[in-house]
Design a protein around this nucleic acid. Sequence first.
DNA 1: ATACACCCTGTACCCCGGTACAGGGTCAAG
DNA 2: CTTGACCCTGTACCGGGGTACAGGGTGTAT
Lengths: 137, 137
Amino acid sequence: MERLTIGRLAQKTGLGRETIRYYERRGLISPPPRSASGYRDYPQEAIGVLGFIKGAQALGFTLREVAELQALIGESKAVCGDMRDRALLKLEDIETKIKRLRSIRQSLKKIIKACPGKGPLSECSIVVGLEGADKKS
Amino acid sequence: MERLTIGRLAQKTGLGRETIRYYERRGLISPPPRSASGYRDYPQEAIGVLGFIKGAQALGFTLREVAELQALIGESKAVCGDMRDRALLKLEDIETKIKRLRSIRQSLKKIIKACPGKGPLSECSIVVGLEGADKKS
DNA sequence: ATACACCCTGTACCCCGGTACAGGGTCAAG
DNA sequence: CTTGACCCTGTACCGGGGTACAGGGTGTAT
C-alpha cells in the first residue's frame, strides 16, 4: 500500500506541495507522522481536512478564520449555532464588499459615459475629473 | 509664505506623511525640490497629483495601475480613448469581482439555511458539508 | 550503480498598500 | 537656549496567501 506522501496528497487535493507545508506551518493541518527517512506520511483524513480548508476559503474565509473555525470544531461544547454565527458574520462581510464594489462600478460607468472617447487627454473628463489631475506633464 | 512641507501636504490631502514618502519611493509622485536643510518643499500641484491618486484608487485602480495611468498621461500621443479603455478594463475587473462575491454569497446563504442552528457541531451541515470535514477532533 | 523523481529544511521572495520605528537634524516659540 | 514639533533616511514589520529556491537526503526503476 502506497503511503500518502506530500506529493500524492498535493495531487489528490489540487494544492501545491509548498502550500501544504505552508498550511502546516500555519497550524491549519496537524503535522503528520514521519516515515523512517523523515517523509511526511499523511493519514487519509488529511484529504478531508484540506478539503475543509478549500471549502471554507471558497466561502470567503481567510486562513486565519479557517483556523478559528477549526478551533471551534475542536471545542466539545461548541454548538451548531456557533458555526452559523460565523457564517452570518462572513455573509455580512461579503455584502459589504459587494456594496463597495457596486459603488465603484457606478462611478466607473459614470466617468466612462462622460468621456468623449476622442481628442487629447488634456480634455479627457476622466483625467480632469480626478481632482486637479496630474500636472507633472 | 509658508512652504508646503510633507506634514502640511499630508494634512491637506488626508494622507499620512509616511504614505506620501511611500508614493515617492514608488514613483507615483515626483521627488519635490528640497529646502536648504533638506526638507521636501512641494509645489501646489502636488495636492492635485495626490488627489488624482486617491481618486483613481477609489475607482479600484491599484497603485501599479495608477502609475500606468500617469505614464499614459505623460505620453503626448495618448488619446482620450486610451484612458477610457483603461476604465473599461477596470470595469470588467470589478464586474468579475462582484460576480465572484455574489456566488460566494449564494453559497453562504445556502449553508446558513441548511444549518439547524441547534445541536452539536458533529451534525452541523456546515461542517459536514465542507467536503469530508475536519476529522482531527 | 546511476539517473531521476521525489522528499527534507530554511530562507527569501512575490504582489498589495501601507505603518512603525530608530536615530538622527531643524525650526519656531517662549 | 531649551523644548517640542516637525523633518530626514533606512529598515523592518503588518496581514493575506502563497511561490521559489538552495543545498541537501531518499526511493525506485533500469
